[in-house]
Amino acid sequence: MKILRVAGTVIALVLVFISCKKEVSNEGNQYMIRLKFTPTANGEPLEFGKQYLNPLGEDFSISAFKMYIGHISLVEDGTIKVAENREAYYLLNAAEPASFIVETGLNGRKFTHIGFQIGIDSIYNVSGAQAGVLDPANGMFWTWSTGYIMAKLEGNSSYSNEVNNNIVYHIGGFKSSEQSIRQVVLPLPGQQSWALDTNTETEIEIKIDIDKWFSSVHQLYIAATPAIMTPGAVSMQYADNYASLFNTVSINRY
């Protein structure tokens, strides 16, 4: 009989080692949480075609702003993910206001921060044709050098020497040396921690400050880089900047 006990232990160990690897569990009851993004420039809600000034003193206007986010998570103490939805991606698109309202189901543990990822995991960049929000028809895919465009900003600036003073930023890159995926963790206003439950709806309002696209971690002058459409070192600097566009304004419980 001893041998059976040994066998049992072995089996248990083997099972533990090879069972599906889950980074953060999102099991148990799921509660809806809504993120409501508001894109702004110069402190006002973004309007296409309107003249703005970036923090480096350069004028610009915007005709397109799109960004992939995903891996929405609840975070405790700013570092510990307590629940995460790794399945769903969303395409924020300034041409479609409804796209700025994002809902996901998450396990209702205690949290103090909200987290998400900008960009699409490398696996979806290397596994062939995808559908839904990842459909290349959404115009966020490089066809001649496979990979998703994680974020797009297009418009005009008198500081651009491109045709028609265009500014064109297509930022992406999923290989480790060109990584443009960035993690965002935002503290929620107030000191207390929150939990999701059935009785209250939770909505988090997040401001996107497009000014910081040009100047936050790096100072990226339009005059120096009016257009970038490939992964690489420059793309990665814009990625550092786009990770800092976000600010939580409020958490609303209904």
């Binding site: 960049n125 596994s127 062939g128 044709a129 290349p136 895919f141 066809t143 001649w144 050098s145 496979t146």
Partner: peptide
């Protein structure tokens, strides 16, 4: 070698 999968 710019394309990494035949489907795309």
């Amino acid at each position: 070698g710019g394309i990494n999968h035949i489907e795309v």
